[in-house]
Simulated assay, not measured.
Amino acid sequence: MGNKHFKNHTFVICAYKESPYLEECIQSLMNQRIKSNVIITTSTPNVYIERLAEKYQIPVKINNGEKGIVQDWNFAYEQVNTDFLTIAHQDDIYLPNYLEDFLKMVKNVQKPLIYFCNYGEIRNSVEVDENKLLRVKRIMLKPLEWKKLWNNIWIRRRILSFGCAICCPSVTFNKRSIKHSPFEVKYRSDEDWQAWEKISKRKGAFVYNRKIGMRHRVHEESETSIILNDGARKKEDYEMFCKFWPSSVAKLLVKFYSNSEKSNQME
C-alpha cells in the first residue's frame, strides 16, 4: 500500500434529493489519508447530485426499484464489488483517519464481520464529541475495547439487548462474511439495530475502535428525527427488545429507551 490506496474497500454514499451537506461528505471521503473507491447511489436522481458526482468524478448508480431508506441501503450494498464497504450517509463526515484506522485494526483479525468506531455529532454546524447520549453508548460498548472479546457472541448480544449503541454510518461490512445486505425492509427506524442483532449470532469479530472516526449530523430534516417525531419507533423498539427479553421486561425497556431518544431531537 505504498501508494496509499486500498482497492478492496468502497465508500458508497446514499444520496437523497438535494442535501446541502452532500459535498462536505464527499470531501471527507476524498480527504482520507488512505484512499479507496467511492460511488454514489440514489433513488432520487437530480441535477444537483449529477453535478457533484461530475465535479469529483464519482460514478452514480440509480435505484429504479423499490424506494425507502432500507431499500436504498440494500441497493447500495449490492452495488459494491469489493470485500469491504461502508455505507456513508450523505449528511455525515468521516475524519481523515477513518480508513487508515480500519485497516490497522482488521489487519490481524481472522474473520471480521463488521468494523465500527466511536463517533461524534454535528448539531447546528457545531462539532459535539461529548453529551449524555454519546456517553451512554460508549459505556455500553466498553467491553469491546478489549480485543479478546471481539469474537464473543454472548458479550455482543448482551450489549445489543440494552439498545443500539453502534452508529450505523461508522460501520464497515465484510462482504466475504456478509454476502448480502443484512437490513430488513419491514423495519423503518430500527433497521440498523436489527442488522447488528442478526449479524451478532454469527461466528466472527465485531471489531470496535474507541477512537472517533466520523461525525453524525443531527438535524430536523434527518430521517431519524422524522421517525422520532412521528412516534413510529416504539413498536419496533419493543419488537427488538423481545429478541432478548421476556415481554414484561421489554415493555419497561421501551419506556426507558424512548426517553433517551429525545437526545436525537434538536433543541
Rank of each mutant, 00 (worst) to 15 (best):
E221K: 15
S170M: 05
P182D: 11
V218S: 08
N152T: 10
Y257C: 06
F116I: 01
C167H: 00
E239R: 10
I26E: 05
N152I: 09
A15H: 01
A88Q: 03
K132S: 10
G163A: 12
N97R: 14
L95C: 04
V60P: 00
S189N: 09
N63I: 03
Y16V: 07
Y98G: 04
N118A: 07
L133F: 13
Y115P: 00
K132Q: 13
K179H: 10
K55Q: 09
K107A: 14
Y119F: 15
N37C: 02
E100H: 10
P59V: 13
N64V: 08
N46G: 11
V126M: 13
K7E: 12
F6E: 09
Y21E: 12
K4E: 06
L144V: 03
N97D: 10
N118D: 05
S200D: 04
T224I: 15
F6S: 01
K235I: 07
Y48T: 03
N74F: 09
N3F: 04
E24Y: 05
L99R: 02
N81H: 12
K67P: 01
Q110H: 14
I153Y: 03
V128Q: 04
E130A: 11
V109S: 08
K137F: 08
F256Y: 13
Y16I: 13
K67F: 08
L252F: 02
R138D: 03
L160R: 07
C164K: 11
W245I: 05
E100F: 09
N209D: 13
T42N: 12
T44Q: 05
I114H: 01
F244L: 04
D91E: 13
I153D: 01
Q194I: 06
E191A: 11
W245F: 11
E23T: 04
I139R: 13
K262S: 06
I159G: 13
N31R: 12
G68T: 04
P112H: 08
A53V: 10
E24G: 13
F256N: 15
E221R: 15
L141W: 00
F256K: 14
E24V: 09
V171E: 03
F116G: 09
K198I: 04
T172N: 12
E23H: 10
A15L: 06
V171H: 07
K203W: 00
N229L: 15
E221H: 07
Y56R: 04
P143Q: 14
R156S: 11
F116D: 02
D91S: 07
I155D: 05
Y16R: 11
E220P: 00
S28W: 05
D83T: 06
Y257M: 14
S43C: 09
I139H: 11
V218D: 06
Q90E: 15
N81L: 15
E267P: 07
I49C: 02
Y98R: 11
I49D: 06
L160Q: 05
Y238D: 03
L113V: 00
W154Y: 14
F183L: 04
F6H: 15
K262E: 09
K35Y: 01
C167I: 07
Q27L: 15
